[in-house]
Amino acid sequence: MSPRSISDLALHDAPVVRVDDTVEDAVKQLVESQLPAVPVVDQSGVYRGIFGEREFMKARFPGYLNHLHGTAFLSRSLDDSLEKRDACRHEPVGNFMSTEHIDVGPDFADTQVAELFLHHQVLVIPVVADGQVKGVIMRQDFFRAIAERFLAGGTAA
């Protein structure tokens, strides 16, 4: 029997949120699940995107932040006066999710997962089969699984 792949070891069940759920609900899910991002599905359960720490920050902080070249000139005293977009609380999460599909199919290789983590700097990769989310792989777990195997001197799967 071949040893389980690292990605299998790192596969994590994940709650999903629906595109029409509010940002507030999605953030609750994020906090409760302790995942850095959760997959977003449409009404029929098909995977549409991902909503996580980055997307939440984009929704919550001023929309022009992305366009500034740097923000080192900001001081703490200004934090209160900069527009915090609280209105996003009741908006559908679909408006803020990332639709850049960085995911893997059911039959993925560890190398593919490693390549995605390296190239896209994401923290979570959803595993999707026929449009349905089967779980997520967290970078942290993936790293721990490789590190444990590496330190144990075992061979890679």
Binding site: H69, G70, A72, F73, L74, S75, S77, L78
Partner: peptide, 8 residues
């Protein structure tokens, strides 16, 4: 005046 231009 709280902005610190030099740090930009």
């Amino acid at each position: 005046m709280d902005l610190d231009a030099s740090r930009s």
